[in-house]
Design a binder for these strands. Structure first.
Lengths: 206, 206, 206, 206
DNA sequence: GATGAATGAGGGTTCATTCAT
DNA sequence: GATGAATGAACCCTCATTCAT
C-alpha cells in the first residue's frame, strides 16, 4: 500500500523531516532531496503541499513557535506566588532550549535571513505570546508584595531569561573552544541552570 | 596600474570583503564571486591567499575574534573599582555587538556549523581571553569589599553579560515581529542598555 | 516531445557518448559537457544515471569488456581442431582491436590511472574470461595430437596474442613516425595480420 | 646561493621533474605547479626554457627516446651469432620496459594524443633506429645459417618483441584484475621473461 | 495524490599562462 | 635568469524546481 494515500500524514511527515533538515543544515544548507527522502515522500509532494523550499521553512518555523507557545501556556504561572512563578519560567525556558535545540537553530537561521520569513507570516504574529501579560502580572504582584524591584519591563525580562540560556547553548561550540570547557557536560549544564536562576532572581529582588 | 603588486593590501581587501559577505549571507549563502568583486580582486587570488572558501571563512572569524579581544584588552579594567569595572565591561560588550553586527553573524554561522572551523584553529585557542582572569579578579575584589555575592563563576558571568546583549540583537528580527516592537529604535536600544546594566549589577550585589 | 521519457534509451545514449568521448580524449581530457551534448541529454542526467564522471568512465569500461567477452564467446572454438581454433582466435583478436580502437584507448587510459576503476568493479572480475579455459583446452588438445609444444601457459599465450596486435595498433602514431611507415595502410595492416599469425603459430608448433 | 644561476642544471632539473610528472599523471593530469616545485624552480622558468607545457612534454619524450636508443646502441649485437643476438635484444627490451616504466607511460600518453607531439619533432625522426638495420642483418645471417625462417620483416619483428613486453607491463593493472594474478610478482615477471624468449625464438626458427 | 525523469542556471575550484619587479 | 602575484577561461558538479505520466 506504500506510503501514499494519507494526505495528512504525508504532509506532516514532510514537515517533520524539513524541521530536522533545516535545524541541522540551515536554510541554505538544507537539501530538498534529503527532506523528501527522510519523509519517505516524493520530492514533488513537497512542492504540492508547501509551494517552495522557503515556504516549507516558514511552515517549520511556525510550527516550532506554536509548539513552544503551547508548552509555555501549560506552565500555569498565574496562580503561583511571584518568586515561584518566575523560577518556574526560568527553568522551563532553559529546559526547552536544551531539549529542543532545533528551535534555536531555526531561530538563528531565520535571523540570519533578517526575519524575512516571519515577516510575511500572519500566524507568527497571532501566536504573539500572552506570556508577556502573564509576566507583567507576576512582576506587578512581586512589586506589590515588596519582593521585586520596580520598573522592570516584562519584555526586557523575558529576553534576559531567554538570552541567558540561548547564548550559552546556541554558541556552545565556539564557547567550548574559547574557554576550553565542555559546556554540554551534565555537571556544566546543571551549573549553568543554577547560575541563570541565581542571576535572574537576584537581579529582580528588591 | 591596476590593483596588483601590493600583496598585503590585496590579501587584506579580500579578507574585509569576505567578512562583509559572510556576515550578510552566512557561509552557504556567501558567493565567492561577490567576495572577489567587492575586493577588486580576481577570484583566483582568493584561493591563492586562503586556499578555500571555508579557510577564508575561518580567517575572517579569527580576525573578528582577534579584534574584539584586542578591544577588550584596551578597557583597562584592572585598575578600576569593582563596580565601575563591571559596568564598563557591560557597556563595552553591548556597544561592541551593536557596532559590529557582523561579529554576531559570524558567530551564529560558525555555531550553525557546529564550530567546525574554530575547532581546527589554533589561533582562536591562543586568543583565549585573559579577560576571564581580569573578571575573576574583579569579582574577588568586589567580594572582599563586601560589594558582590560570593561564588560567582567569571566564565558564567561573562556568558551572561554577552548573552543579554547577543540574544536581543542577534534575534532582533524575530523578536521585533513577535513583540511587535522596533527593537532597533534609538530609545529601545538605550532602554536595553539600561536594563542589562541593571540586571547584571543587581544580580551580583550582595 | 523532446528527448525525454525513455530512461533506458537516455541512459544508453549517454553511455555511448561517454565511450566515444573517453576514447578520444582520455579521462582527464574528456568533457562532461560534450558527452551530454553528444547524447542529446542534459548534463544533469549524466549524474542522475551514473553519479560522477569517474563512475561513468567505469561504466563505459565495463560495457567495453562485456562486449569483447561476448564476441569472444561466439567464436565457438571448442569444436574446432587446435590449429584452426588458435588461428581463429588470433584473427579475431586482431580484427577486434582494429575495429574497436576505442577499446584500446579505454584500456590505455585505465592503466594510465593504475587500474583504479576496474579495481573497484566487481563486474569486471565476474566477466573474467572463460576464454582462458577454452585456450587451455585447445593447447592440451594440440599437445596430445603432437602439434604443439608442451608447457605453454594459456594466460601468457593470450597476452602474447593480444600484445602482438595491441602494441602495433595502440602505438601506431609513434611507430609510424619512428619507422617512417604508414602502419594503417591496408597493405600494412594485412602484412601485420599475416605476421602475427605466423609468429604465434610458429611459436607454438612442436 | 639558492638554486639559481646555473642555467643548464635548472633546465635539466625541470626536464627530469617533468618526465616524472608526465609519467605519473599523463599530459592532461600533469600539473605545471608540481613540476616547478619538484624541480625546485620557479614556474616562470619552465616557460622560459621550454615555451609551454606541451613543448615540455615533447622535450621529455625526446629525451626518453634518446635514452633508449643510446642504450640499444650499446648492446653490440652486430658481432654475435644470430640466436644469441636476438636473445640479447629480447632480454634487453623486456628489462628496459621493466626498469623504465615512465617510458611506457610517455608512449601511451603520446599515442592517446595521436602522436601530435612527435609529429612535429624532427629530433625523434633523426633518432630513427639504426636498430632496424642491425635486426635485418641478424635475420639475414640467421637465414643464411639455416637457423631462421625466411621472409621475416625486421620492423614487424621488432614490434613483436616490444609488444610482448609492453602489453603485459603497460596493461598490468587491468590484466591483474581480469586474470586475478599479481603480474608484478618476481616469479610472474621471470615467467613472462621466459615466455617471451620462448615465443620469439621458437617463432623465428626454421 | 503520487512518481521518476528532466532542466538550466550557477556553485566552488583549478588550470596554464603572463605581468611587474 | 629568476620571482611571487595576478589573470580569466573552463571544469566538474549541485541545486531547486517542473514536466509527462
Amino acid at each position: 500500500m506504500k506510503n501514499g494515500r494519507d494526505p495528512l500524514r504525508t504532509r506532516s511527515r514532510i514537515l517533520a523531516a524539513a524541521t530536522a533538515e533545516f535545524a541541522h543544515h540551515g536554510l541554505g544548507g538544507a537539501r530538498v532531496d534529503r527532506i523528501a527522502r527522510r519523509a519517505g515522500a516524493n520530492k514533488r509532494m513537497l512542492y504540492y503541499y508547501f509551494g517552495s523550499k522557503e515556504d516549507l521553512f516558514l511552515a517549520a518555523l511556525e510550527q516550532a513557535y506554536a509548539h513552544i507557545r503551547s508548552a509555555e501556556h501549560e506552565l500555569d504561572l498565574e496562580h503561583r506566588d511571584p518568586r515561584e512563578a518566575l523560577k518556574r519560567l526560568i527553568e522551563f525556558t532553559w529546559n526547552y532550549y536544551l531539549e529542543h535545540p532545533e528551535f534555536m537553530t531555526l531561530l538563528a537561521t531565520e535571523n540570519l535571513h533578517k526575519g524575512s520569513h516571519v515577516h510575511r507570516s500572519k500566524r507568527v504574529q497571532r501566536l504573539h505570546s500572552p506570556l508577556v501579560d502573564t509576566l507583567r502580572d507576576i512582576l506587578r504582584r512581586g512589586e506589590r508584595e515588596g519582593l521585586f524591584r520596580r520598573g522592570i519591563d516584562p519584555v526586557q525580562l523575558y529576553i534576559s531569561i531567554a538570552g541567558e540560556g540561548y547564548f550559552y547553548l546556541s554558541n556552545r561550540y565556539t564557547l567550548s573552544r574559547i574557554f576550553d570547557r565542555d559546556l554540554m557536560a551534565p555537571r556544566a549544564l546543571a551549573a549553568r541552570a543554577g547560575h541563570i536562576a541565581d542571576m535572574v532572581l537576584n537581579a529582580v529582588r528588591r
